[in-house]
Design a protein around this nucleic acid. Structure first.
Lengths: 219, 219
DNA sequence: CCCGGCCTGGTACCTGGGTACGACGCGCTA
DNA sequence: TAGCGCGTCGTACCCAGGTACCAGGCCGGG
């Protein structure tokens, strides 16, 4: 059986090498390219023609969604798996709409990862079960009243970040956040930036949308 | 019976004169001051000491909420009625929290207006019935499934603005709005600005919140 | 004991978004 | 015919917000 040629796309080199190590441990996988940004990914996809692309959502410049759109348009043979830290965000769903075949969390177990890659490589689609569950909850007819440990779904966030997240969802500006939490605006910006990065969101507007969609605010 | 001394606060001079004409037609009302901004309002409230203040929410500089807060703090004898174009926004509720005694829509009938002023002048509170209804819907235990002409609640907005409003609530940026509606970014900005002004909202973040609160988006 | 995560803060920079104008064409109505 | 509302577009300005990068303090675990 021939090897599955994989490309990694993520702006964090560290994460790429982590994934590379996991993947290279499998003898039917070979990592043929790494890209640190969307533009690079598009170029490499065209030249090295990988079978499977693991695509981060959030990157400087061209983001993972747009890159997915362009790559699938130009070369549908490359199966793309969207990677995200969080299990639900607009970008990610946009990614599926953009032609991605899979959807995985970055904290997935190695066997989940390899299974997903083999699945999409063989033509199937693979979506993280947690995501599937979320999708059903969100787009199904009835969403069960959010249990109050629902905030724990924001597992990627630290305690402080969770607080800030919720406050952003209330519509507070950065100065207002600083006032509420007795922080400098610098610190607030640091928190906000980290929240956006971890959840793969573009700006505070999307934070609000996510919070409402998850039922974390507004009754 | 002595006259009720009224101050008008709104950045639109036209609207002020309109209200003034309505109010002066009542022989127990007299308009003793007009202010075009929050700072002016605070100063005038202290010097002319009106009985009732009709306060617009959205103004350049110090907004109506902050002005309300400061005036009620300094001089609780002045009863403040919040005026808004729309029947529900964060600022308005903030106004009630800030110490306002009434809440009225700018398109209220003259008799509603005069009744509200007499009510607050005599010590009662007066809240527009539409607002009351909204509050009950929003903060009551159960909100009736939004009837699909619910968007019509955005009566102040034109058709185009309504479309843009909903798209903003989806999280679209200005360039994205321009693309979706085949408009220039300039036009988009014009629409967005008008929407914010009409609804008395600060920025697009609050648009999203309002839309979700009203159940206009995201099921 | 040191290391790493977390929270905090700062500086510098740049872009998106919001504001304030003014302008033009269209269609409707007084 | 003269408005007026609406939608469109432009230019110019300013600031909030987001990004990048660095750094110190605290705490808990290896």
């Amino acid at each position: 059986m021939t090897q599955t040629r994989i490309m990694l796309v993520d702006d964090q080199a560290l994460l790429r090498t982590g994934f590379r190590m996991v993947l290279e441990a499998e003898d039917d996988f070979t990592v043929v390219a790494e890209a640190g940004g969307g533009a690079e990914a598009i170029a490499l996809a065209a030249s090295v023609r990988p079978d499977v692309i693991l695509m981060d959502v959030r990157m400087p410049g061209i983001d993972g969604i747009e890159a997915t759109r362009q790559i699938t348009a130009a070369r549908p043979e490359s199966r793309i798996i969207i990677l995200t830290t969080f299990d639900l965000d607009e970008y990610a769903f946009g990614g599926l709409r953009a032609g991605a075949r899979g959807f995985l969390l970055k904290d997935a177990q190695p066997n989940e990862l390899t299974a997903a890659i083999r699945a999409v490589a063989s033509g199937d689609a693979s979506v993280s079960s947690r995501v599937t569950r979320r999708m059903l909850e969100l787009f199904g007819s009835k969403l069960p009243a959010a249990d109050d440990d629902d905030a724990s779904r924001l597992g990627a966030l630290t305690e402080r970040e969770r607080e800030v997240f919720l406050a952003i969802a209330e519509g507070l500006s950065n100065p207002e956040l600083a006032e509420r939490f007795f922080l400098s605006e610098s610190t607030v910006k640091t928190h906000v930036g980290r929240i956006l990065a971890k959840l793969g969101l573009r700006d505070r507007v999307h934070v609000v949308i996510l919070a409402y969609r998850l039922g974390l605010v507004g009754r």
